[in-house]
Simulated assay, not measured.
Amino acid sequence: MQKDQLFTRRRMLLASVFALGAAGTAGIVMADGDEDAARIAAPVAGAPALQALKPSAYRLQPLTGYGPPRAEPRKLKVRQEPILQISGRGRHMMLTFDDGPDPRYTPHILDTLAEYGVRAMFFVCGEMAVANKELLARMADEGHVVGNHTYTHPLLTTLNRREIRSEMERTSDVIEDAYGERPQWFRAPYGAWNRAAFQLGADMGMEPMAWTVDTTDWETPGTGTIVDRVESGAAPGVVVLSHDAGGDRSQSVHAIREYLPHLLDSGYHLTVPRRRPS
Results as ranks from 00 to 15, higher is better:
residue 1 M to K: 12
residue 3 K to H: 15
residue 3 K to N: 10
residue 8 T to H: 04
residue 12 M to D: 03
residue 13 L to K: 08
residue 17 V to H: 14
residue 20 L to E: 05
residue 21 G to N: 08
residue 21 G to I: 06
residue 25 T to C: 04
residue 26 A to G: 15
residue 26 A to W: 12
residue 34 D to E: 15
residue 36 D to R: 06
residue 38 A to C: 06
residue 40 I to N: 06
residue 45 A to T: 10
residue 47 A to C: 08
residue 50 L to H: 08
residue 51 Q to H: 14
residue 52 A to G: 11
residue 53 L to C: 14
residue 53 L to V: 15
residue 54 K to I: 12
residue 56 S to E: 08
residue 57 A to M: 10
residue 62 P to C: 04
residue 62 P to E: 01
residue 65 G to H: 04
residue 67 G to N: 02
residue 68 P to T: 05
residue 68 P to N: 07
residue 69 P to F: 09
residue 70 R to C: 12
residue 71 A to N: 07
residue 78 V to S: 09
residue 79 R to H: 13
residue 88 G to D: 10
residue 88 G to I: 12
residue 90 G to W: 03
residue 94 M to L: 10
residue 98 D to T: 11
residue 106 T to Y: 04
residue 110 L to G: 00
residue 110 L to N: 00
residue 113 L to F: 09
residue 117 G to N: 05
residue 118 V to L: 00
residue 119 R to H: 03
residue 122 F to W: 00
residue 126 G to T: 05
residue 129 A to V: 06
residue 131 A to M: 14
residue 136 L to G: 05
residue 141 D to K: 02
residue 147 G to L: 01
residue 147 G to H: 01
residue 150 T to E: 06
residue 153 H to F: 01
residue 155 L to Y: 07
residue 158 T to F: 00
residue 160 N to F: 04
residue 169 E to W: 01
residue 172 S to F: 03
residue 173 D to L: 11
residue 176 E to G: 15
residue 180 G to P: 01
residue 181 E to P: 00
residue 184 Q to F: 08
residue 186 F to Q: 01
residue 187 R to W: 09
residue 188 A to L: 12
residue 190 Y to R: 11
residue 190 Y to A: 12
residue 192 A to Q: 07
residue 195 R to C: 14
residue 198 F to H: 02
residue 200 L to S: 05
residue 205 G to K: 14
residue 206 M to C: 06
residue 207 E to W: 01
residue 208 P to I: 09
residue 208 P to K: 03
residue 213 V to N: 07
residue 214 D to A: 14
residue 217 D to G: 12
residue 217 D to L: 10
residue 220 T to C: 04
residue 222 G to Y: 02
residue 224 G to V: 03
residue 225 T to K: 09
residue 225 T to E: 09
residue 229 R to V: 02
residue 231 E to F: 07
residue 234 A to N: 07
residue 236 P to Q: 07
residue 236 P to N: 01
residue 238 V to D: 02
residue 239 V to W: 02
residue 241 L to A: 06
residue 242 S to T: 05
residue 242 S to E: 01
residue 242 S to I: 00
residue 244 D to Q: 01
residue 244 D to E: 02
residue 245 A to I: 02
residue 248 D to V: 02
residue 256 I to L: 05
residue 259 Y to C: 00
residue 262 H to E: 12
residue 264 L to I: 15
residue 265 D to Y: 10
residue 265 D to W: 09
residue 267 G to A: 06
residue 270 L to V: 05
residue 270 L to E: 00
residue 273 P to Y: 03
residue 277 P to W: 11
